[in-house]
Amino acid sequence: MATMPASLLFQDEYAHQILAGIVQMFQLTICAWLAAMALGVLLAMLRMTHKRPLVALVVAYVEYHRNIPMLVQIFIWFFGIPTLLPQTVQVWINQQHSEFIFAVVAIALCSAAYISEDLRSGIRAIPSSQMEASRALGLTYLQAFRKVVLPQALRLALPPLVSNTVLLFKNTSLAMTIGVAELTYVTREIESQTFRTTDIYVVATVIYLSISLMIMAAGAGLQKRYRIQGR
């Protein structure tokens, strides 16, 4: 039993397919994660400005992305948005690997909403007395935020951020519905070609599981490394 899945991997044809699928999965994950983190930080900062229109914008953004299924968001981006763009752009998009780009965009925008909420709750959890003490010493608002509030807030936000990273990673599998040849897509392809369903499913499951666990372990490691001593 143990040799059967492995034999799949060593058959050139399928090994290449699986590898290509894994690479696509990593590309999706990394691109989406970087974009999501950057956007999430921006959204969190906008939320904290207390300016009504900006706050409303962020709240609307977050609520939209949190209440609509990821799959539907992908469909809107892939099927719906191109029809709104001018003809020339549509043609250009069809010549690129548009499914990859739209998948990254959809996943990144959705995760950014969750990430901004994680950051926001981390910041809110820091008692206002910390800001008060900093200001009493003469630090400016920005200095106090950067050196006192944010370092503590990030430590608090780390567990949900790791959780959302794993979620983002798992969401890349949804890209298969619009034709991105990532791991799940390849899995189904090989299944239909070889009918060795168990083998290929086991391989894919093990890969997903190991990477998820690695992300969680990395998060735990980070948490340990940056733990506030004495707590």
Partner: peptide
Amino acid sequence: FRAGVGFVFQSFNLFPH
């Protein structure tokens, strides 16, 4: 100005990190 006024809080408010 605040830098020139020494203030000690009831709950110390040290920076834990």
